[in-house]
Amino acid sequence: MRGILGLLLLFALLPFLPLGAWGAFLLDVGLFILLFTALALSWDLVARTGQLSLAHGAFFGLGAYGAGLMVPHLGTLPALLLGSLLAGAGALLLGSVTLRLHGLYFAIASLAFSEVLRTMALKLPFTGGPIGLPVPPPFGGGWPLASYYLAFAVLLLAVALSLWAERSSFRLAQAATRQSEAVARVLGVRVVRVKLLSLLLGSLVAGLAGGVYAMKALFLNPYEAFSLGRAVEALVIPIFGGLYSTLGPLLGGVVLVGLEQALRLWIQEGYLVVYGALLILAILFLPRGLLGLLGGRRG
C-alpha cells in the first residue's frame, strides 16, 4: 500500500519537480505512463476473472473516438464521460454474447470485436475514416497541465477500482471464477455477473484513458486508436509487473512505458527490438513479474 501511495504522490507532484531541460519530455513520458498503466489495471481487473481480453485496445479506441467526436460540442468532461460510456456499452455488448465462453475462446471473440470496430471507424461517415479525426486539447487548451492531470485522475480511478476489487469480497468471487468456474458456480458465485461487471468496469476505465489520449494526441486514426498493439500492451504490463494485483501493473507500467519512451529516444530505429528482448528476458526470469521479486503473494 505504501508503494502505491508513494508512486501516486510522485505522479501528483511530477509537474512541480525541478526537472530542468528534461521537464517537458518527462512530463509527456509521465502522462503516457499514467494512461497506459490505467489501461493495464483495467485489463488486470478483467484478467482476475480468468478472461483474457484482447478488446482493451477497442475499448480504448471507443473512448478516444467517442470523446474526440464530442469534445467540440459538449466540452471536455462530458465528452470524456460519453467516450467512457460508449466503451462500456461496447463491453456489455461483447460480454453479453461472449462471457459464457472461457479463456482462449473469449480472447478470440474479443480480438474479432476489435477488428470489427476498427473497420467501422474506417468506414463510418462521421469518423474521418482513414484520414483521421482532429481533436481539440482539453478545456480549449487554456491550461497546459490539463491533459496530465486528467490522465492522473484516470489512473487514480483505476487504482481505486482495483483496490476495491482487491479488498472487498469481490476478490473472492473473481478468484473463484478464475480458478474454477464449475466450483465457483456450485459454491453460489454468479460467475456470468462477476465477469460482466469486471469487463464493464475495466472498459469504462479503458475508455476514459482513450479519451484523454485523444485530447493529448490531438489527432486520431483508426489504425492507431484501435491498434492490436495497444491491447497487447495492456496485457504485457500486468504480466511484467505482477498479475491480479494493484501494485504489479503500477510497477510494470512505470518501468515498461518509461523504458519504451526512453528507448524510443535513445535508439530511434529498432527500439522495439530491444524492448521485445527485455520482455522475453523478463518472462523467462520473472515468471511472477516484478512483484515476484518483492515477494508479493498472488490471490
Partner: peptide, 15 residues
Amino acid sequence: ELSVRENLLVGALFG
C-alpha cells in the same frame, strides 16, 4: 491460489 479459509469463505459468502 486461495487459502483453506478463503475457499470456505467463497461458499459462505456467495452460497
